[in-house]
Amino acid sequence: MPHTPEPHEDDDLDRTPAPKPVHYAEQALLGALLLEPARLADTEPLIAHHFDSHTHAALFAAIYTLSPPDPADHAKDTAWLNTVLEQARPHAPGLNASYIHALIQFCPQPKHAAAYARMIRADNARRVLRGHAERLASTATDPGLPNPAASTLGMADDIGRVLDSLAEQFAPHPGPLPRTALPAEVPHEASEEDLAEERLLLATATAYPAEVQQMRWLAETDFLLPLHAALWQSIAALVHRGDMVDPVTVLGEAQHRGLLTDALTPKDVMALVSTPAGSPEHWGEKILQRALLARARTVAARIAAFADDPANTPHQLITGSRRALADLNSVRTRWHRATAPTLAPASRAQARPAPVPRAASPPHRPAPPVARAPR
């Protein structure tokens, strides 16, 4: 069956992209409703906002707003069709009577109106979910937000609510998970400031090991530099075993873990863990927040990939997106543990000769000669 163009479509077929399947579903549904207006009851809960085409949305809104005609009268004349056109034209100036009649001719089976409506709602679900994924990614990369972690997690909650709403609209059914090829982790360029924060964590954790015991919320995967992650594990291992912690014992643990190489000398390790500033929790929270935002960008890219894959059914789209959100929620749990207000233990004040504010800025000092390839 040939494609019926919309009134505003470009005649140059070489420059006009091929219509998506939903375009034909919208044409078929509108043709069914124009031919048999009573079929509108079969389309619920479809609304005009679900349509991809502005012209089609205006037509559906007019049909939805007007009272249906008497079937016998509708079969005899075009009075109701003319009223629909008059109602829709202010919102779609290019609409004309010939297109109304072309839609009627295009509809294969008016009795299949409910199936056409489901196709339209499914396509709208993809667009809505993709829009939310774009907002999640944008929020996670916005440097001007006063509380980027809270704003990003709020956007993730919005996606969760959208998925709950879609799950109510589309009945679940058995079937395979999405086979969409997932994009790789969104890379993060390791700036000198980022790497300085990781070095300061290592130094302050060595200086104040008692606080490391409360920082189980920080994982090695949160670090940009694998070396920093390995040294953090070395410090944490000493603390959890109850061993003494200072730059020399950290050097010994690093040696046992095989971290020393020609490029990383004992002097380099000592330099990394010997100049504390601030507190371990402060630097740990900054590292964890950066990891959370990076994970949010990756989750947004995966949800967008699911939405962009037309082979996914609504059920597959919902299931795949929920699994992607679960990856972010694992970091969210650790973030809440890190930032939850707690009473400082009495031993913490005794561990430090002088209190240092948590928000101290990293001092400017050269990095030791080690590789900086981000993880």
Rank of each mutant, 00 (worst) to 15 (best):
P178G: 10
A311C: 12
A133C: 07
D327Q: 15
D246I: 12
Q350T: 10
V22A: 04
A28N: 09
E253G: 00
I47T: 14
H50C: 05
R241S: 06
L293I: 02
A300P: 08
L13R: 14
A28Y: 03
A326G: 09
L46T: 00
L177G: 12
E86I: 06
A324V: 06
L325C: 09
L59Q: 01
F51M: 07
L33T: 01
S361A: 13
L182N: 08
R334M: 04
R199Q: 14
I120D: 00
P174R: 07
P174A: 14
L231P: 03
I120V: 11
A114P: 06
A230G: 11
E189R: 13
L227T: 06
S98R: 13
D123F: 05
L129M: 14
T139Q: 04
L145E: 00
H54V: 09
H240W: 15
I159G: 02
E168Y: 10
A237I: 02
L40F: 09
A113D: 01
A263F: 14
A28G: 08
R89A: 11
A79W: 04
A125C: 10
H56N: 11
K111G: 07
R365S: 10
P19F: 03
L34Y: 02
A326Q: 15
P183Q: 15
A230W: 08
H188F: 10
S274G: 10
Q214R: 14
Q289K: 14
A149N: 00
D73V: 08
W80Y: 09
K76E: 11
D11I: 06
L66G: 01
K20P: 06
Q109A: 11
K20A: 15
P172T: 04
A190K: 00
V269K: 00
E9Q: 15
Q105N: 07
P266F: 02
N82Y: 07
R375C: 08
S279Q: 10
R15K: 13
L272Q: 09
L218F: 08
S53L: 05
D262V: 11
H112F: 12
I100V: 13
A156D: 03
E197Q: 15
H336D: 11
T180N: 14
A305H: 10
T333H: 10
D157F: 10
L288H: 00
P108A: 07
T333Q: 09
A88K: 03
D12W: 15
L225Y: 03
A149F: 00
T249M: 07
L195F: 07
D11H: 11
R127H: 15
E185P: 04
F106W: 05
L182R: 14
H256S: 12
F106A: 14
P314N: 06
A122T: 06
M119N: 11
Q109M: 12
T206Y: 03
P17K: 04
K111V: 13
L224H: 02
D14I: 02
